[in-house]
Design a protein around this nucleic acid. Structure first.
Ligand code: SF4
Ligand code: SF4
Lengths: 154, 154
DNA sequence: TCCAAATAGCACCAAAATGGTGCGCTTAGA
DNA sequence: TCTAAGCGCACCATTTTGGTGCTATTTGGA
């Protein structure tokens, strides 16, 4: 299905919230705070944030005042990176996914007439995701806060 | 996951094959012939083609010499239409899918900070699919055959 | 010093989507 | 009238998804 996973949605919500709080001067945002604001299960948020931390999209801090913070500027975090971190690079077709080749690959592969043309579509889709930054997902007010940083972000 | 369903892939393969045979002068292409050429289960092809027929993308003919044929020119059949026919309009997020609203909808909906920005991305994705025609998925030789028809197709 | 609040890791589960079949019915050309 | 084709509906097994339990481990502050 051409649909983002719930985990990815939660990740996006968390990232947007962290960026908003970061713009307000907060250093680390806890998972509890996020689930306080949005009715999403705390454990999932932790799970998702951890995955994002592995991909160096957020940083985490333990302890009572700990939590999560963006590891980079919202300008330089793309939707493509987020999706890749949470559900792997969008394959569009099964054979494009290096992970799903476990089951012996696709039977049709050698004679498949749509592999190459669909691959082109995938490239376009990927471009779409890569050109959408986290910043562009933020509400206008928060976007404005990050605007001056745009220069050093690129 | 941002991945086409196997049924959709089979549908695309079938459509490409039907278009190719159509270009070669064949009136109706049987499901057997398609599965003869590509190692895909016959029943699934029938299932998929039937769905495409309901959306008036292909026409079907029963009886010994029966089979399937494109209902419109490859120029006017878009990837978006095919995907919509086989897995519904790409929702990207759960709340965009009118079908998945059965389970009471999304808890986050009323306070969701990503609904509107992600909706914009969805529009772009949709545009991408709508601007990819079946003809552009065909191999160059077959594409050439359909070129002269392009005028009356639009 | 010790507690409480926070992340980290791992296994586990139930429900849903997905890929795929069985089997009998209907159509229609040879 | 035989047979090759599509049609309809229910059914199944596997995988993915969304979600939880429980137990470390870190760390600021009373
Ligand atoms: S080879 Fe063709 S049918 Fe097989 S997964 Fe790739 S695109 Fe799909
Ligand atoms: S409301 Fe937000 S969280 Fe809920 S499905 Fe829509 S985008 Fe996802």
């Amino acid at each position: 299905m051409l649909q983002l996973t719930k985990r990815t949605e939660y990740g996006l919500i968390a990232l947007v919230h962290i960026a908003e709080r970061g713009a307000a001067g907060c250093e680390f945002v806890s998972a509890r705070e996020i689930c306080d604001r949005y009715p999403i299960p705390r454990r999932l948020v932790a799970e998702v944030l951890k995955a994002l931390q592995r991909c160096e999209i957020v940083e985490s801090q333990r302890g009572p005042t700990g939590g999560y913070a963006l590891a980079r500027s919202p300008e330089s975090i793309t939707l493509g990176q987020i999706v890749t971190a949470l559900e792997g690079a969008p394959p569009l077709t099964s054979c494009e996914s290096p992970i799903l080749l476990k089951s012996g690959g696709c039977e049709v592969h050698s004679v498949c007439p749509i592999r190459s043309p669909v691959h082109r579509v995938r490239e376009q889709l990927w471009g779409l995701l890569e050109h959408t930054s986290l910043r562009s997902l933020l509400p206008p007010a928060t976007q404005a806060h990050y605007a001056p940083r745009a220069a050093h972000a690129r």
